[in-house]
Simulated assay, not measured.
Amino acid sequence: MGYVALEEAFAIPELAARQPPTEMRIRAKQEYAGLWAERLADFERYRIPDMDEHGIDIQVLSLSVPGIQADTDPANAVENAVFANDYLAEVITRFPDRFRGFAALPLQDPDAAVRELQRCVTDLGFVGAFVNDHTDGRYLDDPVHDELWGALEELAVPLYLHPGSIPVDDWAVLQGRPELYGASWSWQAETGGHAMRLVYGGVFDRHPAATLILGHLGEFLPFQRSRFDSRYRTLQVQTPLELPPSAYFGRNIVITTTGVFAPEAIQAAVLNIGPDAVLFSVDYPYEDTAAAVAAVADADLPEPVKQQIFHENARRLLRLHQ
């Protein structure tokens, strides 16, 4: 049985005309920028042959950065989310054996975001939701999103928390070193901090059945679990947690291999968070599919664990067998 890849991007050229212009802070080489633009909007010419060549049965598609988080007007965000999700649903209808979808959510309007999640899962058959970090500076531990977490529990679908929203501040450590912005470093720190807000904010105590997916080996948070616990014991916290911080990893937080193609790092992630909580991803078209597959295949892990990572965990979490 072939692999399932969870963090695979697509773009809709028409969507950009519907949204405010955004500053391109990542200065990619032109050869890569052109390649990405061509492949993001494609589903048949490049994408499926790439999947076939590397043994990938299913890509779970999500709207590329910054997605709906680029919208500043709540009404426009709602309209654009519906537009993007309907577009994706049509693609999945054309290729039902190859693609699944994560819903783009208009978190600018929390009530509308809940309704759109319910529509996408119930009516369109999507397998979860995908959010690019904060929305206009508001994070998912904000009480206005409590209903969203409840809906995720009720629908039994995960939320994939991804980097890439428009920055709300300019870190001094980035000044003069634009190379540090984005996937090179800053996105991991930003998104990892967002995830820890959810832990320390008690989101998973109030919603114990909720599942959060983090890419890039969990934004490297699993490797800090022991330190989270040792420091938590010394802190005066606003609201005590029901469990040590480390316990939410594997129970509520699962991770993907996206963009980290070092076999030894994947092996260490399995040792840290457990084989049930690590899932395969490529980050197509931004990363190389062959390298993503090889990183898992070459890890010093038992073959049954590799199969869990490659597809079994995703099929269970997303109920792809149904």
Rank of each mutant, 00 (worst) to 15 (best):
D52N: 15
E190H: 08
P285W: 02
F204W: 07
L63M: 08
G125W: 05
A183E: 07
F228D: 11
M51Y: 10
H194Q: 09
V270F: 01
D146Y: 00
R177S: 14
V4L: 13
L161E: 03
I56Y: 00
E179N: 11
K306P: 06
R225Y: 06
P285E: 01
A37I: 14
A11T: 09
S186K: 02
G274Q: 05
A189D: 02
T191H: 05
P158G: 07
E90K: 13
P106H: 03
A5F: 07
Y32L: 14
G274V: 03
R25P: 08
P302F: 09
K306Q: 14
F310S: 03
P275K: 10
Q236F: 10
T135K: 01
E14G: 11
Q118C: 10
D57P: 13
L159E: 05
T256N: 10
H162R: 06
L317W: 02
P106E: 05
I12L: 15
V78P: 04
H145Y: 15
S230R: 12
D136H: 09
S64N: 13
P167S: 06
I309Y: 01
R47K: 15
F220W: 08
A262L: 12
Q30L: 08
Q69G: 00
D50Y: 00
D86F: 03
L198K: 06
A156C: 08
R319Y: 00
D123Y: 11
I273M: 02
I273H: 03
P163A: 08
N252V: 08
V121D: 04
Q19T: 07
T135F: 03
K306D: 07
A314K: 05
A84Y: 04
T22D: 06
I58G: 12
P163S: 11
L61H: 04
A262N: 11
Y232C: 00
E312T: 01
P163M: 12
P66F: 04
P163F: 06
P163L: 10
D52S: 10
I58H: 04
L279M: 15
R225N: 14
R227G: 08
R47F: 02
I266S: 02
F43A: 06
M51V: 12
V131Q: 05
F130T: 03
R231A: 15
D229F: 01
G182W: 01
P49G: 07
E44I: 15
E287P: 05
G101A: 11
L159Q: 04
L174T: 12
V131L: 00
L40R: 04
V305G: 12
L35Q: 02
A33V: 12
